[in-house]
Computed example of a mutant assay.
Amino acid sequence: MIRYLVLALLIFPAIAFSCKSFGEITAFKTLDSGGSGKFKAIAASESGLPGYVFYQPKNIGEAVAQEHGLPVVIFANGGCNDTSFPFERMLSEIASHGYLVIALGAMQNRLDDRPLKKAANEMMTEALDWIGRASQTKGGRYFSSVDMNNVAFAGQSCGGAQVLAVASDPRVKTYLMFNSGIGDMTMAKADRQSLNALHGPILYLVGGDSDVATDNAKLDYQRINHVPVAFANLPGGGHSGTFEEPLGGSFTRVALKWLDWHLNGKDANASTFLKRDLAGFDDWEIKAKRFSGT
């Protein structure tokens, strides 16, 4: 009997270890009581994909039963760093509304609890590759749990440049640029020519004149003429936005309006960006172009 078991493991290793490879949470924490959405969220470390944080509904089965597959957001961090610690309140809040967010860099409890490194651009596509395989692996936590037809790439500051560097990935449906714009710079292997790789609607969120990314974001907005683009500005928001506020503040609420519109089919949200229906966003300035009717 032992001989046959060993033989089976040698012949079918992927099957034998599929459950362990896809969907074993090794550590987690809760932020802002799990968020304001209908699914309490956690930030988790996943054994099958170390070096990332998975922001997700804690009861992912319940979320999938209601949402029929969670849209996926891959997030690159400010400074191109391998930590999402400064953005975890926003990312957890997004997850609580029925999203799976995978952020570059291992989970931290304090920003100084490990040395920081630069995250490679390829980590974004590798995360998408992994969750795609995991969603097809029976017995794993993520089996049939994600909607690979509704994927966003998002990034803050230098992380936005990383988004542009891998923007050509055909699986991506929409993009979010937080306090970011490439302008005439070269950063993270991206430059103004990288804008040509965009193939879906893109949202820029900036923090006014005190945000060092605002001028570059304005240049990008002017130059993008082949895909729909929106520009959301919070005067006085600065380069750090509202990420440290409870639930990630109003930057998060604007981002959720966009994500729910483009990845969850909530077309009523379009009015926030196309008709400047800014109820609840009184301090924001929003404009858009290349959308139908604009």
Rank of each mutant, 00 (worst) to 15 (best):
L198T: 06
H199Q: 12
H199R: 12
G200N: 06
G200W: 03
G200K: 02
G200Y: 05
P201Q: 10
L205V: 15
L205R: 02
V206Q: 13
G207S: 11
S210M: 15
S210N: 15
T214A: 03
D215W: 08
A217K: 07
Y221G: 04
Y221H: 10
R223P: 00
I224T: 12
H226Y: 10
H226D: 15
F231Y: 15
F231D: 09
P235N: 13
P235C: 14
G237A: 09
G237V: 13
H239K: 06
H239C: 07
S240L: 11
G241Q: 05
T242R: 09
T242L: 11
F243M: 13
L247P: 02
G248V: 06
G248S: 05
G248M: 09
T252L: 06
R253N: 12
A255T: 09
W261I: 03
H262E: 11
L263I: 07
L263R: 10
G265D: 04
A268E: 15
N269K: 08
A270Q: 09
S271H: 04
L274T: 08
K275M: 05
D277T: 06
D282Q: 14
D283A: 15
W284H: 04
E285Q: 13
I286S: 05
I286P: 04
K287M: 01
K287R: 03
K289T: 00
K289F: 00
R290C: 00
